[in-house]
Amino acid sequence: MIKQLLLASFGLALSMNTLAEIESKNTRFGTFEIKENPDTGAETAYFNKKMINPLIEGNNSLSLVGKYQIGGSDILLVQDNGGTGCPAELYFINISQTKVPVVSPRFGSCSDLIDVVANKDKIIVKMPVFLGIPEDPAMVKKLANKKVTYEYDGKVLKENGKLFKRSE
């Protein structure tokens, strides 16, 4: 009985340790990980075992949407999964030979329905305008097919063709 209890405890501890490291992706310059921040308990982005600065922490969780290449850089698209008010926001992380990740401003329409197209020069993210909890049926109909387009070339982020400026 004690042996079974010890084995069960060991199995639980092992599974908890496995859950702590959620996602890992190799780049040409090192390893990107999403794992629990020991100080806050939030899922956090790491590169080569160091927290990325500026800090990228998930509201509810983080997920890696994709890895792309633009020139000599590996570009990661990371989604911050939120709640009902804003289900998702995104970040681009540019990793190059300097091995110092460069983080784009947080962006997105709050929709978690995204379409990504990448080529050798830029990454395009299209997403619907997020309506939240619709109260006005006329507004829902008006905005139903409206999309927001973000373009990232490894340096500059644009929203609908204009330089992106984060509004808080």
Score class of each variant (00 low, 15 high):
Thr149Tyr: 01
Val78Gly: 02
Pro38His: 00
Glu21Leu: 06
Leu163Lys: 08
Ser61Pro: 03
Asp136Cys: 09
Phe107Pro: 00
Thr84Asp: 15
Lys25Asn: 08
Lys142Ile: 15
Asp74Asn: 09
Ala13Trp: 13
Gln69Cys: 01
Lys141Met: 14
Leu76Thr: 09
Phe130Ala: 04
Asn48Phe: 10
Asn60Ser: 07
Ser9Glu: 09
Gly30Trp: 01
Glu43Lys: 09
Val148Met: 13
Lys3Gly: 00
Glu21Val: 03
Asp74Ala: 05
Ile93Phe: 13
Val100Asp: 04
Lys25Tyr: 06
Pro38Leu: 00
Asp153His: 07
Asn119Gln: 10
Ile34His: 03
Glu89Lys: 10
Asn145His: 12
Ile75Lys: 05
Tyr46Ala: 12
Gly161Tyr: 01
Lys35Phe: 00
Glu23Gln: 11
Glu33Leu: 02
Ala8Thr: 09
Ile34Ser: 01
Val156Arg: 03
Glu21Tyr: 06
Lys162Glu: 06
Gly161Arg: 06
Lys146Gly: 05
Thr149His: 04
Lys25Trp: 04
Gln69Phe: 00
Pro137His: 00
Leu131Thr: 01
Lys67Leu: 13
Asp80Thr: 05
Asn160Gln: 09
Leu131Gly: 05
Phe130Trp: 07
Ser24Ile: 11
Glu57Tyr: 04
Leu62Cys: 08
Ile56Arg: 02
Phe29Trp: 08
Asn17His: 13
Arg166Gln: 14
Gly161Cys: 02
Lys147Thr: 07
Asp80Lys: 04
Lys155Thr: 14
Glu135Leu: 15
Asp74Lys: 05
Lys122Gly: 00
Ile56Val: 06
Lys165Asp: 12
Thr149Gly: 01
Val65Cys: 03
Val140Asn: 08
Val117Gln: 07
Phe32Thr: 10
Ala8Tyr: 09
Ser109Tyr: 04
Lys3Met: 03
Met16Gly: 14
Leu113Gly: 08
Leu157Glu: 01
Phe92Ala: 14
Phe29Ala: 04
Met16Tyr: 15
Thr18Phe: 15
Asp115Trp: 14
Pro101Ser: 06
Asp112Lys: 10
Pro87Gln: 04
Leu113Phe: 12
Ile34Cys: 03
Thr84Lys: 15
Ser61Cys: 11
Met1Cys: 11
Asn53Asp: 03
Cys110Phe: 05
Phe10Glu: 06
Cys86Gln: 07
Gln79Ala: 14
Lys126Pro: 02
Arg28Trp: 00
Ile34Asp: 00
Asn53Arg: 02
Ile114Leu: 13
Asn17Gly: 15
Pro128His: 02
Gly83Ala: 05
Met51Pro: 11
Asn53Glu: 06
Pro101Phe: 01
Val129Arg: 12
Gly132Tyr: 12
Ala8Phe: 09
Ala8Ser: 09
Leu12Met: 15
Glu159Cys: 02
Lys142Arg: 15
Ala138Gly: 13
Pro54Val: 13
Tyr46Ile: 11
Leu7Met: 12
Asn81Gln: 12
Thr31Pro: 07
Val156Ser: 01
Ile93Cys: 12
Ile95Met: 01
Val65Ala: 08
Gly83Pro: 01
Leu5Gly: 01
Pro54Tyr: 15
Asp74Leu: 08
Gln69Tyr: 00
Ile75Trp: 05
Met139Val: 14
Ile133Asp: 10
Lys122Leu: 02
Glu135Gln: 13
Val78Asn: 02
Leu6Thr: 11
Ile52His: 04
Pro134Gln: 15
Glu36Arg: 15
Thr27Trp: 00
Ile56Cys: 05
Ala88Thr: 12
Met127Lys: 03
Asn60Trp: 02
Ile70Phe: 14
Pro105Ser: 13
